[in-house]
Amino acid sequence: MADFDKPSSTEEEYFAREDIEKKRKLALQQAEELAAKRREELMQLHYMKCPKCGMDLQTLSKGSVEIDTCFNCHGVWLDAGELESIIKQGPEGGGKVMGAVLNLFKRK
């Protein structure tokens, strides 16, 4: 048999490195997909749940702002930028929104 039919050791090393790199990329891709799936599961588990008591949050529209409220513990939760939006509305608009929010939780 001729020597040229047999792969050289450098050729074998090259293909071994290529195979390892493919497997590494596949493992990274699978890890990313698993992490994304876990994030989605956690979001579904905790989405619109009160951070204080765990009950469902209800969305109330007051002016241009949607406020997440918990009727169990009377918590009021604002999303990013909503507080700034209330402040920008000034005393007349912001006061009305905050007054309406406070009226929701007055005890009778």
Rank of each mutant, 00 (worst) to 15 (best):
F4Q: 12
D5N: 13
K6N: 10
P7G: 04
S8A: 08
T10D: 12
T10L: 10
T10Y: 01
E11L: 13
E11T: 13
E12I: 15
E13I: 05
E13A: 08
F15R: 14
F15L: 13
A16Y: 00
A16D: 04
A16F: 00
R17G: 03
R17E: 12
E18K: 09
I20S: 08
I20L: 09
E21T: 02
E21M: 07
K22Y: 01
K23W: 01
K23F: 07
K25E: 08
K25D: 09
L26D: 09
L26F: 05
Q30F: 00
E32T: 00
L34Y: 13
A36P: 05
A36V: 04
A36T: 08
A36C: 00
R38W: 01
E40Y: 10
E41S: 06
E41C: 00
E41P: 02
L42S: 13
Q44N: 14
Q44H: 12
Q44V: 03
L45F: 10
L45R: 13
L45A: 09
H46C: 07
H46Y: 13
Y47N: 13
M48Y: 04
M48I: 04
C50I: 05
P51S: 08
K52E: 15
C53T: 11
C53I: 01
C53S: 07
G54T: 05
M55D: 15
D56T: 01
L57M: 02
L57R: 04
L57N: 03
Q58L: 01
Q58Y: 12
T59K: 09
L60Y: 06
K62S: 09
G63L: 07
V65D: 12
V65K: 07
V65L: 00
D68Y: 00
D68L: 12
D68C: 07
T69M: 04
C70F: 00
F71P: 05
F71Y: 12
F71G: 10
N72R: 14
N72A: 06
N72I: 03
N72E: 15
C73K: 07
C73Q: 09
H74R: 15
H74P: 07
H74T: 14
G75A: 11
W77Y: 15
L78C: 09
A80E: 12
A80Y: 03
G81Q: 06
G81I: 02
G81V: 05
E82S: 10
L83F: 09
L83M: 09
L83V: 03
S85E: 15
S85N: 11
I87F: 05
K88H: 12
P91F: 03
P91S: 10
E92I: 14
G94S: 07
G95V: 02
G95M: 04
K96G: 14
M98I: 13
M98K: 08
G99W: 00
A100L: 03
V101C: 08
V101A: 04
L104Q: 10
F105D: 10
K106D: 05
K106S: 10
K106H: 03
K106C: 11
R107M: 06
R107W: 02
K108C: 02
K108L: 11
